[in-house]
Amino acid sequence: MKYLPYCLTALTAILLDQLSKYIILQNFQDHERLNVIPNFFDLTLVYNPGAAFSFLADMGGAQKYIFTVLAFVISGYLARAIVKGEFGRLGNWAAAMIIGGAFGNVIDRFVHGKVVDFLLFYWQNWYYPAFNIADSFICVGAALLIIEGFTQKKTQAA
């Protein structure tokens, strides 16, 4: 029961991610865009066979397995760190968010062979690469882990 909130956080990340992707896949064709906030935010449907910013997208399919193994290894490390008490409370929440996000994208790799992205932010000629809910959980979780790292070092040094 001690770890139930973190398990539920990871599961919530997976469910929100997969539900949002299901809705997009049911309502959009490839590269179709729906403007939500003029000159700033669109919903779209694009696929990413690589990792962040299409990193290693041109590996001919091997990246699917590389990123899946990486997700399992990192998630295993984070889960172990939660159980061993290596993080503070904020770090535990952050790790759970990263685990959930990682598995949201792993599901895509096995179901679609690539990751479904649909959130597109832009301004004039600048575009941030499209991403998804899982990516958001991963990024927020990583930022929270960094914040905890700084605050723990201060506490330990004092």
Rank of each mutant, 00 (worst) to 15 (best):
K2H: 10
M1W: 13
L144R: 03
A51N: 05
A13Y: 00
L15K: 01
A95M: 06
A13I: 00
K21N: 03
R89N: 10
G85V: 06
F72Q: 04
E86G: 13
A51E: 02
I66Q: 09
T151E: 10
N39Y: 12
G101Q: 02
L25Q: 15
L11R: 04
F150S: 02
A96V: 00
G91Y: 01
I37S: 11
G104L: 00
G85E: 01
K153C: 08
I146K: 07
S75R: 02
I147Q: 06
A158T: 11
T44C: 10
T44M: 14
A96Q: 00
F41E: 00
R33F: 11
G50D: 07
Y65E: 11
I133T: 06
R33M: 13
D42R: 02
L70H: 10
L25R: 09
N105S: 04
F110N: 04
A62S: 11
F28A: 01
A79P: 01
D58H: 15
L120C: 14
L45G: 05
N132L: 03
G101C: 04
I99Y: 01
L34S: 13
M97R: 03
Y3A: 05
D42F: 01
K64P: 06
L45M: 10
T155K: 10
G50Y: 13
N125F: 04
G50H: 06
S54V: 04
F110E: 05
L43C: 09
F67P: 00
D17I: 00
V115K: 08
N39K: 12
L25Y: 05
D58S: 09
G60Y: 08
G85A: 05
A57G: 14
G88F: 01
G85N: 03
A10L: 02
H31P: 01
A62P: 07
P5L: 14
L34N: 07
N92C: 14
F150H: 12
E32T: 12
F72V: 12
R80I: 14
Y22L: 11
V140K: 07
Y3L: 06
P38F: 06
D42W: 01
F72R: 09
F72P: 01
E86M: 13
I37M: 09
P5N: 12
Q152A: 05
D108G: 03
T155G: 05
V83G: 04
G50A: 12
L11Y: 08
A157Q: 08
I66N: 07
I147D: 06
D58T: 13
M59T: 13
G88S: 08
Q26V: 04
F40C: 13
A95Y: 02
N125I: 08
I98V: 14
G91S: 04
V83W: 10
G101S: 03
D117K: 06
